[in-house]
Design a protein around this nucleic acid. Structure first.
Length: 227
DNA sequence: GCGACAG
DNA sequence: ATCTTGTCGC
C-alpha cells in the first residue's frame, strides 16, 4: 500500500506537540461506513531487552470476519514513551508494516485513542489522517476525560467527555470485564466507531482484527529473541 | 507540590 | 508496553 509523507517524524517532544496542533483541525469526525468490506487491526509489542518495537497488521473481511492477510515489521524504539505522544513512538514502525499489505483496507482499528486525547489527536487520528483511511481508536485504558459508571452487562456503554465534548464511548465488550474506550480516529463518527467495534467482537474483550494483530506481534517478538 | 498518565 | 504463576471468581 502506498503511504504519503504528511510530515517527517520528529525526535523532539516540542516538535511532536507542534505537529499535533498543526494537524488536529484536519480530522473529520463524520463519514459513512456503509460498504466497508475490509477491516485492518493494528497493534504492537515491545522487547525492552533489544529496545525493539514489533508492529502487526491483520486484515479481515467484514462483516464475516475471516482473515485475509497479515503482515509485520519491526524497528528500534527511538521516541520515548510519553502519554499523549504515542503516535511518535509507534507510528513509524506501524506505517512500515502497513506499507507491506497488498490491499488498502476500508477501515483500520488501532490499539490506542482517537479524539479521546488531550489535544484530540491520538494515534488513531494521526495515522488515519496520514493514510486518509477511516480509523477507530480502541484503547484498553483511559488517557483523559470523564465518564459515569457503567453497567456490568455486555454492550453497556457511557459517553466519555473530554473538555466538555462528547468524545467517545466507554464500552463493555464482555459482561463484568473491564470496558474498552472507543473513539473516532479520522473520517468516522462516534456511533460508527462503536458499531464497527461491536460487530468485530467474537467473545473476547478485544475486537478480532486487533486481537489477531496483538497475538501476531507478540509471536513475532518471541521468534526474534536470541536463544 | 500532588495525582494522572494510550503503549 | 514488560517483568511473571498460580489462583480466585464467573
Amino acid at each position: 500500500m502506498e503511504i504519503a509523507d504528511l510530515h517527517p517524524w520528529p525526535e523532539d517532544q516540542s516538535e511532536a506537540l507542534e505537529i499535533q496542533y498543526r494537524f488536529r483541525d484536519e480530522i473529520i469526525t463524520t463519514g459513512s461506513l456503509n460498504g466497508v468490506g475490509l477491516i485492518a487491526g493494528v497493534d504492537t509489542a515491545f522487547d525492552h531487552n533489544t529496545d525493539t518495537l514489533f508492529a502487526s497488521v491483520c486484515v479481515f473481511n467484514f462483516p464475516d470476519l475471516t482473515e485475509c492477510e497479515r503482515v509485520s515489521d519491526s524497528g528500534k524504539a527511538i521516541f520515548p514513551y510519553v502519554p499523549g505522544l504515542h503516535a511518535f513512538r509507534e507510528g513509524p514502525v506501524i506505517l512500515k508494516a502497513l506499507a507491506r499489505i497488498r490491499t488498502r483496507p476500508d477501515l483500520i482499528i488501532f490499539a490506542g485513542h482517537g479524539i479521546a486525547h488531550p489535544r484530540r489527536f491520538g494515534l488513531a487520528c494521526h495515522l488515519g489522517l496520514i493514510l486518509d483511511i477511516p480509523s477507530v481508536g480502541c484503547a484498553r485504558k483511559r488517557l483523559t476525560g470523564q465518564h459515569d459508571e457503567i453497567d456490568p452487562e455486555q454492550g453497556a456503554n457511557v459517553p466519555l467527555i473530554v473538555d466538555n465534548k462528547d468524545s467517545g464511548r466507554v464500552y463493555r465488550t464482555r459482561e463484568k470485564v473491564k470496558p474498552v474506550i472507543i473513539s473516532p480516529g479520522h473520517r468516522c463518527g462516534i456511533n460508527d466507531a462503536v458499531n464497527v467495534v461491536a460487530k468485530c467482537l467474537q467473545g473476547y474483550r478485544i475486537p478480532e482484527p486487533m486481537r489477531a494483530a496483538h497475538r501476531l506481534a507478540n509471536r513475532i517478538k518471541r521468534n526474534n529473541k536470541k536463544p
